[in-house]
């Protein structure tokens, strides 16, 4: 006879934001020193001192130590994230290191530069290359793409599920799924009905960037500007997606629900979603 005594079965503890499904941190780069030749005209040194600390700075300047997270959604593409502590304005640095092609895409996001909205993040994406062992530097770059336009993906972050609708080359929309990954209807809760009702009145739409790393591997950069204008704060969300395996990893840089600074990494699993109804609607937020 099976034991019928009630006992505690597995239940996930509380993780920061959307980080429940974040994969284990990656230590493959420990001990490596990379020379990043960015198209802002400077060369930078990124040295992974140990599993927790890296040093970073311009080649011709003193390097500083920062605590970092490294994740990878693909065998030889790395997502490195850290906050440049002690810098004003507050600056988050994120690098997508594509070791197969020796290319890099950097996102330096600053907060505190908008006089009206001091919590508005301002991402600054810079392309570049990683100097190879033979001293050469590739001339090709990762680039902006329209590959994802018209597609939508339902992402599961554990404590949060959301549909990213890649509505144009410059914008994205958000919605909530009516069904889960295998077609079962999402329970019709009051919160769900309220979100649907609001969505019928206006779209949630924000500026976004789409960058192709290689086949099936993309960056999606989402900046919560509308949220910031309406609620006084919004975050910069930077995703590195592997659409061959429907994983993503990423980071949120900005402020949490309590208004405190946040900079954390996360991960998710996805499935394509039919958002044709939402895609067909005109924007309620941007003239174009």
């Amino acid at each position: 006879m099976e034991n019928t005594v009630k006992k505690e079965l597995p239940k996930p503890p509380v993780f920061e934001g959307m980080s429940q499904y974040r994969p284990p941190l990656c230590f493959e780069l420990v001990g490596q020193k990379l020379e990043l030749c960015l198209d802002d005209g400077y060369e930078y040194e990124l040295f992974f001192k140990d599993r927790k600390v890296l040093t970073f700075g311009r080649e011709d300047e003193e390097k500083k130590e920062y605590a970092y997270d490294c994740l990878k959604p693909e065998d030889v593409t790395y997502f490195v994230n850290f906050e440049m502590t002690g810098v004003t304005p507050r600056t988050g640095a994120t690098f997508v290191l594509d070791m197969e092609q020796s290319l890099v895409t950097a996102n330096f996001t600053t907060i505190g530069v908008n006089p009206k909205y001091p919590k508005m993040p301002r991402p600054h994406i810079i392309f570049g290359a990683i100097r190879k062992e033979d001293g050469t530097v590739p001339t090709i770059r990762h680039g902006y793409t329209a590959d994802l336009v018209g597609k939508a993906i339902h992402w599961q972050y554990g404590t949060l599920a959301v549909v990213h609708v890649y509505s144009s080359e410059r914008y994205y929309r958000l919605t909530i799924a009516k069904e889960d990954f295998i077609g079962r209807e999402i329970p019709d809760t009051e919160e769900f009905r309220e979100r649907r009702r609001r969505e019928m009145m206006r779209l949630y739409e924000e500026p976004g960037d789409y960058i192709k790393i290689k086949e099936g591997i993309y960056i999606f950069n989402a900046n919560e500007e509308l949220a910031c204008r309406e609620r006084g704060q919004g975050n910069n969300l930077f995703f590195l997606m592997n659409l061959n395996r429907m994983h993503d990893v990423g980071r949120s840089f900005g402020h949490n629900g309590e208004g405190k600074p946040e900079n954390y990494t996360y991960g998710a699993f996805g499935n394509y979603y039919d958002a044709s109804e939402l895609l067909a609607r005109d924007s309620t937020e941007y003239i174009r």
Binding site: E2, N3, P10, F181, I182, G183, F269
Partner: peptide
């Protein structure tokens, strides 16, 4: 270990496979 005994869980291993 019997820590999982009685647990009913969904293993999602592909976008439409649970």
């Amino acid at each position: 270990s019997d820590a999982l005994t009685g647990w009913r869980a969904e293993l999602a291993f592909a976008p439409e496979e649970i």
